[in-house]
Design a protein around this nucleic acid. Structure first.
Lengths: 134, 134
DNA sequence: CTTCTTGCAAATCATTTGCAGGGCG
DNA sequence: CGCCCTGCAAATGATTTGCAAGAAG
């Protein structure tokens, strides 16, 4: 993800945008809240106003380059990947595992069909305690 | 759900609590936000302070008599039922269908096991457009 | 009576918005 | 150089909290 990628989606390649992308890509767990990004930028001595972070994240989400995840207690963003996946979150340490289960996906489609709904989106989050924390 | 039920969970049977229960049980769709309840009480000329509504709902949730659902765009509460179920929400009209799928539940357990997590909770919301709105 | 509750208003938290100055293309 | 972008601070919306007055058991 670089300056040209941004231009391709119609966004100017500004410093704040590039920095935010950088953080999202380089962070260990790849799932950061707006606040996480704000703090990380301050640590790196490259502060960006919070308002800009929110605005940029929203633009990134609308362009499809990042996905917003609404966990029970906070919202985090991740760089979009080609393959769909859901999340398993450790409620103790915050570690996040990604998974994709064909069977579940199929069941969801069947359920929507059964009720006559046309699915537009779905969110599946599993919360638990990981092996380390347990 | 009546005054004695409240006492059994250690809560005094106060007017606000009984009214809130009443609304949750009698409302058409059974999935209301704190705000929905507040407005409904005003309509009935039985206004209760918003702060109280939030406090009461939280207490109800902790006692297990209501469940809080965190939809993408708002939070709603429903009276707890014996059987677990997930939700299918129409993004146009807000209609909510409840469903329970054994296959999905089993898959979730397998996934948690595979990653060594001990599941504590999960949230599955399907968003779509219902037959009527479509 | 004592303790749990409520109402009200102020406080908080996360996120959004208005606006004037700055920077990319 | 024009339009998009940013920072700042104020606005917002949802929920929480402190506190004194009011009910439940």
């Amino acid at each position: 993800m670089n300056a040209d990628d941004l231009k391709n989606i119609g966004l100017k390649a500004t410093t704040p945008r590039l920095k935010i992308l950088e953080i999202l890509e380089s962070s260990e767990n790849h799932h950061l809240s707006a606040e996480d990004i704000y703090r990380e930028l301050i640590i790196r001595n490259e502060e960006v106003g919070v308002a800009t972070i929110y605005r940029v994240l929203t633009q990134f989400e609308q362009s499809g380059i990042v996905k917003k995840l609404n966990f029970e207690d906070r919202s985090v963003y991740e760089i979009s990947k080609a393959e769909h996946h859901d999340h398993l979150i450790c409620t103790k340490c915050g570690k996040i595992e990604e998974f994709n289960d064909e069977t579940i996906e199929n069941c969801q489609d069947k359920i929507a069909e059964k009720f006559g709904y046309k699915l537009t989106d779905h969110s599946l989050y599993l919360y638990g305690v990981c092996a380390v924390c347990n």
